[in-house]
């Protein structure tokens, strides 16, 4: 509860939370506000924003409603951000926990694998995965998750390394606990706060990765995503720049919101770092 109080004391964190709630509200309300398929033809192509009350944010080069795509795109971004983050954090925690707790050859093997992933640029690896497994929304989400786990794994490992020799862990051993219970029940809850904070970074990066993929037209073309819209707008970038700019702002706002929430969580969960 103290952490909650500390969270709401920071204006930046509160703004971040409000922005994030707005994006979530957009995702939820998309179905009511725009009951039609956002990818269906709605009117003339390339209508400027605010020039026609039917299309508040204008239309893209195929005559599809940009506002509808933005609202539905919020769903895709949040979905990819959420699911990919969950995958990355889950793999990261498992790898980091076992490497940190057991040390020795387990640590060596797991960390060499982690390094192998880290030496490849994230995005290149993502391109390879999408090229091999195809670009449906499911494979894209899983692929984003799979390329994002090394950093959380290293973070978890570092926490475990410092916690595993604490006396309360030794006490657990002398009480006769199994390793798995010590790892999950005793150490993990204490190692979690920095990993949760880092999850916000992973989420922001996941959203950006999907957009970048869509910009290269390698994401799922059958869903309305912000990245797809930016990719489309690329063809008319010099004149009808708003087609790319509007989804760009949406991405900016969402990533900013997630980062601010993450920063706020960090200050709330590690209060001592705040009063520097």
């Amino acid at each position: 509860m103290d952490a909650l109080k500390r969270y709401f004391r920071s204006p930046a964190a509160v703004i971040g939370l409000i922005l994030l709630l707005v994006v979530i509200a957009m995702a939820i309300s998309a179905g009511f506000l725009y009951p039609r398929d956002p990818l269906s033809l709605a009117g003339r192509p390339l209508v400027w924003p605010f020039s026609n009350p039917r299309f508040l944010l204008g239309t893209d080069n195929s005559g599809r409603d940009i506002a509808a795509q933005i609202f539905y795109g919020a769903r895709i971004s949040l979905l990819i951000g959420g699911v990919a983050t969950a995958i990355a954090i889950l793999i990261g925690i498992l790898v980091g926990a076992f490497a940190g707790y057991y040390g020795g050859w387990v640590d060596n093997v797991l960390m060499r694998i982690t390094e192998a992933f880290q030496t490849l640029p994230n995005f290149v690896l993502l391109l390879v995965l999408v090229a091999v497994f195809g670009s449906t929304i499911t494979t894209v989400t899983i692929a984003v998750g799979v390329v994002s786990w090394p950093a959380p794994a290293r973070l978890t490992r570092a926490e475990f390394l410092s916690l595993r020799n604490r006396e309360f862990v030794q006490a657990g051993k002398t009480l006769g606990m199994r390793d798995i219970k010590i790892i999950l029940g005793e150490i993990l809850p204490n190692a979690l706060p920095p990993v949760i904070v880092y999850a916000s970074v992973v989420m922001a990066v996941a959203i950006l990765l999907e957009s970048a993929l869509a910009f290269l037209r390698l994401s799922d073309p059958n869903v309305a995503s912000w990245g797809n819209l930016i990719g489309l707008g690329r063809d008319v970038l010099r004149v009808q720049w708003y087609v790319s700019a509007i989804p760009g702002i949406a991405i900016l706002v969402t990533v900013l919101a997630v980062s601010l929430v993450g920063q706020g969580l960090n200050d709330a969960l590690n209060p001592r770092l705040k009063s520097r």
């Binding site: 309360f168 030794q170 006490a171 657990g172 002398t174 006769g176 204490n190």
Partner: peptide, 23 residues
């Protein structure tokens, strides 16, 4: 076997702050 027999011998630790799981 140690895990099962450990109740015969128990330990008290030095640091009262580090030896209890804070959560």
């Amino acid at each position: 076997q140690i895990r099962r027999e450990t109740r015969h011998i128990q330990m008290v630790f030095q640091d009262p702050f580090a030896s209890l799981n804070p959560r």
